[in-house]
Design a protein around this nucleic acid. Structure first.
Lengths: 250, 250
DNA sequence: TAGTGGTCTAGACCACACG
DNA sequence: GTGTGGTCTAGACCACTAC
């Protein structure tokens, strides 16, 4: 039966494994429009019969597609073709105006605070915020950013103690940049970096993605006045939802 | 036997699946330093005995770690803890000076040309390079960028026909920015965006990563003179090797 | 109740690395 | 040859969705 599958897939038997051959074939069908975004694929059982392989192999092939962000699975329902346009964020602002960008691009932005507490600053935060070692306590905030019903990012911020106390309530209820801006704190510069990481198990639970899915990490230290570090942190966003843009003149 | 495993892992049986519990446990051990970067983990067989589960489940747990970039596997050899520092690229330059950044950070940069050919420009390239529809042919280049022996990025560039013809040889042998610079073409601006994507099967082969591993996509259109679009393209880099940095003043 | 995807098992065979 | 990870099978049971 295996040999039949290999023949029917037009492979010379030994090059790519069966699960790859099958996932590539399904991928081609999806991209050719045989399955529209949102459409349901045949069940694992049916796919197994179609390709003449075991359910395990089909599941491996589907896992390949999931890892490439092409399909999502729902227990009890089926396998569905995913398709979504990304939300763009301009990097030229030191702190993303997530709420503005979300609204402009047709999504209802919302935050859910996970924690907001005073902690000892890590050496890294002490360095980034240029804290004196005495006042080495900062407010540590984690919140999830939603676009509509979908969690798109986990934001982690560190605020100097006084700032965190003053703005404790609004910071837990709203978007960071807007909250600071509305309370008279104008940021005028930032040092940022952008990298990619695979979702850990914990992050995959928060952001409702499969383990290992690519996340974008936006690290920043934002300044007030004469390059006085004011807040720092990072935003981990689902890369299937987000994109950062910028322009440069030399 | 399964219940014994669950007890020994200290789980209340129903919350996380076994393969997650095991991969999280191994992850904790790795992060606690029980296994140094580069060290070999016990074989799948031994791990299966240790945790009292089947090889399939151990393989699933190892796959979880692989997807999180914590370990790599080598057929016939074993499972190894990965660990590497990222190479930083400044975004402030319109085109990454990959060679300079690599050299400064202790790596030998090298390129391998995959293709360099004249093709009909896609509508997107026509738009980005502001081509007149008549001269809608461009040189399409794809090359792999190595840091030492390790492929770290796939660069895709589109050059206007005349530029491609003039610099055909050096562009295939060297880094794009340096080549242009050495031949009197000074770029002075760029529109860029940065996103994350999971590696497709094809990309995973080029870049020697598992399918689905996060890649950073640096899209750019670079300008000469008075915002005259000169080249465009994208760099897909392994996110376990690369990081982009920038600074902003408002 | 029927159908779906999620988990897990036990076992087979293969390809590769190393001694 | 021995040990390793890679592929694939056949089958069991569970949890969830829908009717």
């Amino acid at each position: 039966m295996a040999s039949l599958s290999m023949v029917s897939l037009g492979q010379n038997a030994d090059k790519p494994p069966l699960h790859i051959a099958i996932s590539e074939k399904l991928k081609a069908q999806i991209e050719a429009g045989r399955y529209e975004p949102g459409a349901r694929l045949p069940s694992e059982f049916d796919l197994g019969e179609t390709f003449g392989v075991s359910r395990t192999t089909i599941r491996r092939a589907i896992a390949n597609l999931t890892q490439q962000g092409l399909v999502t699975t729902q227990r009890g329902k089926g396998i569905f073709v995913s398709g979504r346009q990304k939300i763009s964020f301009s990097m030229s602002n030191p702190l993303m105006q997530f709420d503005v960008a979300l609204r402009e691009q047709g999504h209802m932005g919302r935050v859910q605070s996970l924690r907001f507490q005073l902690v000892d600053a890590s050496p890294e935060v002490v360095r980034k915020l240029a804290l004196s070692s005495q006042s080495a306590q900062v407010y540590w905030q984690e919140k999830i950013i939603y676009a509509g019903d979908c969690p798109v990012a986990l934001e982690i911020d560190y605020f100097p103690q006084q700032l965190g106390e003053t703005l404790a309530q609004p910071l837990q209820q709203g978007f960071t940049y807007s909250t600071l801006s509305m309370n008279g704190i104008q940021l005028n510069g930032a040092k940022v970096s952008l990298e990619g990481v695979p979702a850990t198990y914990e992050l995959s639970e928060y952001l409702a993605v499969p383990l290992g899915m690519p996340l974008l990490v936006f690290n920043y230290v934002a300044y007030c006045g004469d390059r006085r570090p004011t807040i720092c942190g990072q935003t981990l966003s689902r890369s299937d939802w987000t994109c950062y843009t910028s322009e440069f003149e030399l």
